[in-house]
């Protein structure tokens, strides 16, 4: 996107679709301007010569490994208790996927 171009309502709707967020027309209009401003602002990163730079990590830690030892974990009941709609057996209700 060229920073001089305003981001369109259609583009906002496309991004919203990618992000799985329901956005109505009024919201989309507001976000078009705000997201446009933000993208125009971050365009300035382009000015930096980053040739040869790669970010590796914040501290000296890079990959951290451990032995894969099974340990007791939360009960299924505990894990799903925040689910709002439950079937009788306590399992999740998923309408046919395929």
């Amino acid at each position: 996107m060229n920073p001089k171009d305003k981001i369109t309502i259609e583009e906002v709707k496309k991004i919203a679709q990618l992000a799985h967020i329901n956005v109505d027309d009024m919201e989309a209009e507001k976000y078009a301007k705000q997201i446009g401003d933000i993208l125009a602002y971050v365009e300035k990163l382009k000015e930096v010569d980053t040739e040869g730079y790669e970010f590796k990590s914040q501290t000296d830690l890079i990959n951290v490994f451990r032995e894969d030892i099974p340990e007791p974990s939360l009960e299924q009941k505990e894990v799903v208790k925040n689910r709002q709609k439950k079937s009788k057996g306590g399992s999740l209700v998923i309408k046919s996927v395929l």
Partner: peptide, 20 residues
């Protein structure tokens, strides 16, 4: 719809720009 209803404007903005 869950995300449309549950997220406020700032969450929507950041998630959308991040997705982009």
């Amino acid at each position: 719809k869950t995300r449309g209803e549950g997220f406020g404007p700032e969450e929507k903005r950041r998630v959308m720009v991040g997705t982009y």
